[in-house]
Simulated assay, not measured.
Amino acid sequence: MKVLAIMLSLAAAPVAAADTVHFTTEDYPPYNYREGDQIVGAGYDQLLLMMKEINIPYTIEMMPWARAIALAETEPMHCVFTAAHIPERDKKFKWVEPVAVGRNFMVSHRKSGITVGNIEEAKGYIVGTQRNDYTQTLLENEGFPKIDLATDLKLTLKKLQSKRIDLMPISEQHYIELQEKGEELEAQFVFSEQIFAIACNANFPQDLLARMQGELDKLIADGTQAKIFDTYNLRYTNFGLVAAKP
């Protein structure tokens, strides 16, 4: 696996390696994803600006989500982004938020013939998602009996396209992007709404967390976050306006 990392060094006194912050993330557009040899995205860009102002050493590494979030949960100087802040994760991490606010649609293949209007109706179908993603927790909490787990979102999407699964939850923004690329997807209903955040280890230094939150607050207050959203076409629409094209 090709590792993408970025390191900034203090211009002043040297800092111990233990003071380096390690960020992990996954390929999850439009918040963080690969574009050639670079990591880009609405969450990634905000993180770079925040850490530039804080001016301490850090690394960013892209990897499968299960590993990315596990490192943040177990290693003191680790944080993961862009993570959904859901009740089941609340006490496991310290949070810097909101990096974004989003919705998930439950979607089907356009030619599947499936029509469901709510969670209870969707339980009669095979629903796929990526392993250890927050949507897995949501599906399990709602009592979905047939959950298909894959290593990443792209594999789940391939399963939907080949009709190996019937439904999958997908972010509103990614759904819009896939439709614009010609993918034959159809939104069935709004499955969930959530805050996206940077989730840091429960033992992460509180003073550093406060500095990170302060820098994010500045990005929101001065309009920088909104400009970043515009850059990545992050737009929030009424559900009926983003349904599958005829």
Rank of each mutant, 00 (worst) to 15 (best):
V190S: 02
W95V: 01
D148E: 06
V40C: 11
I69C: 07
P14Q: 05
L139Y: 02
K181M: 01
R164S: 12
Q225L: 14
T115Q: 06
F105H: 08
E53V: 04
I228V: 13
I69N: 14
M7R: 11
E172I: 01
L157N: 05
T156I: 10
E121A: 01
L160Y: 10
M7Q: 11
E61C: 15
G36R: 09
P205T: 06
R131P: 09
K227C: 11
L48K: 08
L157E: 07
E180G: 04
A244F: 00
A84H: 06
L138N: 02
D152C: 08
L4D: 15
N141T: 02
V21F: 09
P205Q: 04
Q194R: 11
G214N: 08
P30L: 10
F239I: 02
W65D: 10
K146A: 03
L178F: 01
P76D: 06
I198L: 13
V242D: 04
H85M: 11
I86S: 03
L216N: 07
E61H: 15
A42Y: 04
A221S: 12
L208M: 04
A221H: 06
T129A: 05
K111Q: 09
N32G: 12
S9P: 15
M7H: 13
P145N: 08
I69H: 14
A187N: 03
E142Q: 03
D222S: 06
F189T: 00
D90I: 09
N118F: 00
S9W: 14
P76T: 05
M62H: 11
K111V: 15
A199T: 08
K146C: 04
I54M: 12
